[in-house]
């Protein structure tokens, strides 16, 4: 007896897989953006603000 074609196996889990992959991916990416990148940028900004204050104080 011929085996019936196996269809729809990918589609059954497609939305779950796409949702989980992008959900986790975007969450991890935002964690990296806010937890690392913006923090590092803020740290650098603070340094230059401090430097500018010191320069202004030295000028006075």
């Amino acid at each position: 007896m011929a085996i019936a074609p196996i269809t729809g196996k990918l589609r059954k889990r497609l939305w779950l897989d796409v949702g989980c992959a992008f959900g986790l991916g975007v969450s991890a990416a935002y964690a990296y953006w806010y937890g690392y990148h913006l923090k590092a940028l803020e740290h650098q900004e603070q340094f230059y603000v401090k430097l500018e204050r010191e320069r202004a104080a030295a000028r006075q």
Partner: peptide, 12 residues
């Protein structure tokens, strides 16, 4: 940022 999203998608 894009790299992390792509890595998660591909590995998932």
């Amino acid at each position: 940022f894009y790299l992390i999203v792509i890595c998660f998608s591909v590995f998932w």
